[in-house]
Amino acid sequence: MITRDDVYHIANLAKIEIDDKEVDDFKEEFQSILEYFNILDEIEEEVEPTFQVLPLNNVFREDVSKKSLPRDEVLKNAKHVEDGYFKGPRIVE
């Protein structure tokens, strides 16, 4: 059973602010979706997990530096910029 507290906890893990009305909707939806996911409990066969499908190996190359994007191009999409840097919110309260 998913509780309202579970939904708040999940929202906090995902760093998404939610209000009381949303909590009720998500609670119902999560309940039915997670119940559906329980179908996987039927599986007893033990196999190795597949993280990705191709048999890929490490590829090595020479450590040669390449030109990066110009600073002003990279900063042009940011709202808060100072002295050629991104400006973020306070980390320490």
Binding site: I43, E45, P49, T50
Partner: peptide
């Protein structure tokens, strides 16, 4: 569990 299903 989902990754194991992927193998199957």
């Amino acid at each position: 569990k989902a990754l194991k299903v992927r193998t199957l």
